[in-house]
Simulated scan of single mutants.
Amino acid sequence: MIGVLNIGMGNLRSVENAVYQLGFDPLVVEHQDGFDDLTHLILPGVGNFSAAMPEIGARELKRPILDFVASGRPLLGTCLGMQLLMGISDEGGVHNGLGLIAGKVARLQGEGLRVPHVGWNILNMTRPHPIFQGIKKGRDFYFVHSYAAVCEQEEDLLASTEYGGPVTAVVGRANVVGVQFHPEKSQVNGLRLIENFCNWDGKC
């Protein structure tokens, strides 16, 4: 059972539909008692970090998310969901994240750089991971974001892209992985990545 966490922000239905079309059973999770039967959890999101983390707190979802990860089951964060995995963000002020990946979230910067970054960018894989299985090097994915993660530990950076310089695109540690792009909108390669995640046992 693939859980899709609903925090009232973003692309919930498109992620749910992608999981269903791939032949898996999606379950929208909205309450802290909805995690027990899940094998995997996807944390999607579109919007502002400073609004998302208080919403997670108000719904009393932070502890169940952390307990889910502690159980060894795989967690995938997409777009804003990936940023929420980090320790801290300066979007809309300074806010603590879930702290599952050491690092921070900072605004994209660069002279003449158009923000938000919207469009297709090539994924530069820096470390192997099961979610990349069957995805050839140099494939592009669909990004929409104004902020990006900066990992404290180099081994947590799995892939980057170029937008005014290197930008973190995929992070991972143990049974947690996050992607800055929208896999559900990234056509064949994005769907393959979601399928790989749904088949992943959380071990690298």
Rank of each mutant, 00 (worst) to 15 (best):
I7Y: 15
A169E: 07
Q21C: 00
N189I: 03
L38S: 09
G110V: 03
L193M: 15
T39W: 00
L22S: 12
D140N: 13
G138P: 10
R192Q: 15
D33A: 07
V177C: 04
T168E: 04
N6D: 15
D37M: 05
V150N: 03
G97M: 07
A70S: 15
L38I: 02
G165R: 05
S89C: 03
G112H: 11
D140G: 06
F24I: 14
G202T: 02
K203H: 12
F68T: 13
T168N: 12
D37Q: 13
P116E: 06
K104W: 02
T161C: 15
H95Y: 02
N196S: 09
G110I: 08
Q83H: 10
G134T: 01
A102V: 08
N17D: 14
V115Y: 04
P54G: 06
L41H: 07
A106W: 00
H40K: 13
R13Y: 14
A106E: 12
S71L: 04
L193F: 06
C198F: 12
R127I: 05
Q83V: 10
P183Q: 13
G172C: 02
V15H: 15
R63L: 10
N196L: 06
L158A: 08
L108C: 12
G134K: 08
N121R: 15
V188C: 00
G72F: 05
E60W: 02
N17G: 02
N121P: 12
I131P: 04
F35M: 08
P44L: 00
I194F: 04
A70D: 15
V176R: 07
F143K: 03
Q109V: 11
N189T: 10
G112W: 09
L193S: 07
Q187D: 13
D37L: 10
I135Q: 04
H95I: 03
A148G: 10
S186A: 03
H182S: 05
E154H: 04
V29R: 02
F68W: 05
R13K: 08
M125D: 01
G178L: 07
I7W: 08
V150Q: 13
V29L: 10
Y142T: 09
E184M: 01
L193E: 06
V4M: 05
R173I: 14
N6Q: 04
D156I: 04
L191S: 05
T39L: 03
G202L: 04
S14Q: 03
V105A: 00
G134V: 04
V176E: 09
F35D: 08
L113I: 13
L85F: 11
G178H: 03
V15L: 13
D140W: 12
S50P: 02
T39C: 01
